[in-house]
Design a binder for these strands. Structure first.
Lengths: 218, 218
DNA sequence: CTAAATTATGAATATTTTGTGAAATATTTT
DNA sequence: AAAATATTTCACAAAATATTCATAATTTAG
């Protein structure tokens, strides 16, 4: 489990880091929102201050959220009730008020991590929804029927968001390891998946000379 | 599922309401304990602030509890530890401390609902009814005779509503030990169960390439 | 702009998966 | 032990899905 600690004060980062180590979390650090965005990909949980130079916590959170689905706890100065509400609205998972008790912070991190593991059962983007448990896909609450291969493809894409995948890679991972098939087979399945995705067909992007990737556009 | 939100601050009610909608709960609102008492009858879960004008949460809870048996989560101001203890004594199901994370609140609501549901002894959908205590199944008040395996299958499906279950998973869970049987066995039982379910046969959905799932269509 | 390379697509064909009836076994009840 | 019930197996039909391939459309390099 990797925790990304984002705060401009080294002292605070160090205190949190210390406690994270005790709870067996690995730690990555960032000094501001910009750095956080770059490092978010590696993290399982983010603890982020709101007030930081270069880019504040909320702005960073908004950007990170579009790309990843990482539980985030915000550190706010005492009494910023307005911030708190605004943040919850954005989807922030929890708040800890400065000065905080490290024990409370760790309790909240643990709670959030635990909760998230359970919530990792759906993927949602606008009104496009994939229910991994039910193996079903919805657009506008209307179920979209995918064939097994199409569904597997979609899930693989979602789990590799933003990464360009070669046809070979797709064949190896979704078909059996030593599949001796035609490359065009992938294209055909992509075509069918795209058709079924309707207005979301362009979530699957052609990477010329390379393969395909799944990406949430901004 | 209807959630009764009781708080004198509209802002807080609105935040909770928003999240409830996302989780597909219906919402009823009340501004104080007195109103809550009047509206409690319609609710399946109650979320109630303690400090409210006219009538506080505890007093309202006591009265509601005499009449109904509705799971209740209390919202308390930070640090009112005494209240917390008193509340659990009264039979409150859970506590959330203000200011709270809506995600945490929803997680707790879901937990309470789930717990409460488990204690249910019947499953009802339209005129399809399963009486877990009596091990019997009715359609239109007419009893449907299922074999033990069929009944076990049905109960397992109901307890895993909306979740796609592989044949292997079904074999492992309904056929005790590691059963070394034919996959087609499951199909045969599904067939017979479906036949017995008559017009409700399509509650059991085939998940191609995967298995089956039990789902209430909307 | 053209040729070459790459990708998209429709349709025919092959393959896989599921539904089902009937027979064979196994288990429980009488 | 016989009868009644349940369970399992199996083969084949039916349905759904996967693959191939020819051709069209698109992009890129020169």
């Amino acid at each position: 489990m990797k925790v990304l600690i984002v705060d401009d004060e080294k002292l605070i980062r160090d205190v949190i880091k210390e406690y994270c180590f005790e709870s067996k979390y690995e730690v990555i650090e960032a000094e501001n929102g910009l750095e956080a965005i770059n490092k978010a990909g590696e993290a399982d949980v983010i603890i982020m201050d709101i007030m930081m130079p270069k880019m504040d916590g909320f702005s960073a959170y908004k950007i990170i959220k579009e790309k990843y689905n990482i539980p985030t706890i915000m550190l706010s100065a005492r009494g910023e009730e307005y911030d708190k509400l605004a943040g919850f609205d954005l989807g922030i998972d929890d708040y800890v008020t400065k000065p905080f008790s490290p024990k409370e912070l760790m309790a909240r991190i643990n709670a959030v991590v635990k909760r998230y593991k359970k919530e990792e059962e759906v993927f949602v983007y606008e009104d496009f929804k994939v229910d991994f448990l039910g193996h079903s896909v919805y657009i506008n609450d209307k179920e979209i029927c995918l064939t097994p291969k199409e569904y597997d493809l979609l899930v693989y894409f979602i789990n590799n968001k933003g990464i360009a995948l070669s046809r070979e890679q797709l064949l190896n991972n979704i078909w059996n390891y030593d599949y001796l098939g035609n490359d065009r087979t992938v294209d055909t399945h992509i075509k069918m998946l795209r058709n079924n995705l309707g207005k979301y067909r362009n979530l699957i992007i052609t990477v010329r000379g390379m393969g395909y990737k799944f990406e949430i556009k901004n």
